[in-house]
Amino acid sequence: MGIVLDRLPGFLEPIPGGSVLITSIDAIINWSRSNSLWPLAFGTKCCAIEMLMATGAPHQDLARFGAEVARQTPRQADLMVIAGAIVKKMAMRMRLLYEQMAEPRYVMATGSCAISGGPFMYHSYSIVRGADEVVPVDVYVPGCPPRPEAFFYGLMTLQKMIRQGETIRKPGIRKKPVLAALPQGITIDDLHAQQQEMLEHDNMVDVEQAAAQKIWATRLDQWIPKPSKNS
């Protein structure tokens, strides 16, 4: 994130009307990001024909989503479309490619091989069962191979996630999906409790806080931004 955008919330929020400006800037930046995703064509297998090649073709046109600029180098891409099975030998390279992409970066796992190992789940000694063991995945598109229309549904879901999820207050952080493998010491009940807590918090409106954010102070030094629970 640039220096300007990092400091921008700090500059703008004290100003009357600043937070509205921030949310508008958020909306514009997220809208422009979601409509110009540049995929990294990481296609290893059959899904590459459908997800990367056939969607770029004239019949199902990826250009109408602004995403037909499929790059081969991760330095210029921001969406990694994992199309194909990941094998242990390739997993290290995939992680390297993911780390070479610049933030904000998104990952879409298409096809059942990238979601869970697919038809090679049993009896195979070299496959990685799911790309989310190597990189954090945002959207999963099931199918073997998924139809190009399914890929577009996944792409539009990702666009919606970008538009709703990111803000310039917390750049790069967005609502992450629940991972398949739980880290050490955390159980599914912990996750349920956490989700419950978040739901309750989001559903209960602090009237005072809401009112305070709506009042425009008449003088600049009367405006003290209330710290919200999420930041």
Partner: peptide, 15 residues
């Protein structure tokens, strides 16, 4: 080669 080696021949012995 070997970056897409899924071991199909070994899998075939169980299918």
């Amino acid at each position: 080669p070997g970056y897409v080696h899924r071991g199909i021949e070994k899998m075939c012995e169980h299918m």
